[in-house]
C-alpha cells in the first residue's frame, strides 16, 4: 500500500509549459485537453511585481469528490497506490465529475477531431484510439508508466526539476522529506479533498 503523490516546488518553476506538452504527447490527449496546464497570476505592483506560475494536474485526492459525484462508479481509486482513474468504459458522460472537481482536473472528450483541423495526423490517429468519445478524461498520474517503474512524463521533462514524484506514505521518499523540511500547501483546502499533490511556495 502506497500513496503516490507529487510535490511541486513553485520556487523552481519557470512557467515553461514543458510539462503541459509532455503530458499531451505522452497520453495523446485529444485537442484542447490538457491534463497539466500551468496557470499564471500577477502579484505585486510595478516594479515589485512578478508573474507567479502554478503548474497543475489531477490532485489524486485522498477523498476525491469526483468519485463521489460519479453516478456510474466509473471513477475509482487504486488500492495499491491511491491513483484516481476514470474508467471510460463505464463513464456515461454525465460530466458530474467535471463540476465536482475543485481543480478543473477533469475534461470532457466530446468527439474525434484533429489539432490541425479536419485532417487528423498519424500520431493523433494512433493516440485517439485510446479515447472513447463522450467520456470524461483526466490525468492518470501516468499509471501506465508508473506500473513499469517509470516516473510520469511531466516529471521527467521538467527542466527545473520542480515536479517531484513519490510515495507520500513512505517517510524515506523525497516527497516526504521535502514535506517535512519545507512548508507546503494544498490547493483549495476548503474543499476537503486531501490532495496528493502538494506545493512548496
Amino acid at each position: 500500500m502506497a500513496r503516490l503523490g507529487m510535490v511541486i516546488d513553485l520556487a523552481r518553476c519557470v512557467g515553461c509549459d514543458a510539462c503541459t506538452v509532455a503530458c499531451q504527447t505522452e497520453n495523446g490527449t485529444p485537442p484542447g485537453i490538457q491534463y497539466a496546464p500551468v496557470f499564471r497570476k500577477e502579484v505585486g505592483k510595478f516594479p515589485q511585481a512578478k508573474v507567479f506560475f502554478l503548474p497543475t494536474l489531477c490532485m489524486h485526492c485522498d477523498d476525491p469528490p469526483c468519485m463521489k459525484a460519479c453516478p456510474t462508479s466509473a471513477i475509482s481509486k487504486r488500492k495499491k497506490d491511491g491513483i484516481v482513474l476514470v474508467d471510460q468504459d463505464k463513464c456515461c458522460g454525465s460530466k458530474a465529475c467535471i463540476a465536482a472537481c475543485p481543480y478543473g482536473a477533469l475534461h470532457f472528450y466530446e468527439k474525434k477531431s484533429g489539432m490541425y483541423g479536419e485532417k487528423i495526423t498519424e500520431p493523433e490517429e494512433q493516440a485517439l484510439k485510446k479515447f472513447t468519445p463522450g467520456t470524461a478524461q483526466k490525468c492518470t498520474f501516468c499509471s501506465h508508466r508508473v506500473d513499469r517503474g517509470l516516473e510520469p512524463a511531466c516529471v521527467v521533462t521538467c527542466p527545473t526539476n520542480c515536479r517531484i514524484f513519490g510515495d507520500l506514505d513512505n517517510p524515506e521518499s523525497r516527497v516526504s522529506q521535502l514535506l517535512r523540511e519545507r512548508n507546503s500547501v494544498a490547493l483549495r483546502p476548503d474543499a476537503g479533498t486531501d490532495p496528493s499533490v502538494r506545493y512548496l511556495p
Partner: peptide, 9 residues
C-alpha cells in the same frame, strides 16, 4: 474543438 473541454484550461 467545438467547446472548451474544461473551463480551467
Amino acid at each position: 474543438m467545438s467547446r472548451p473541454a474544461n473551463v480551467f484550461s
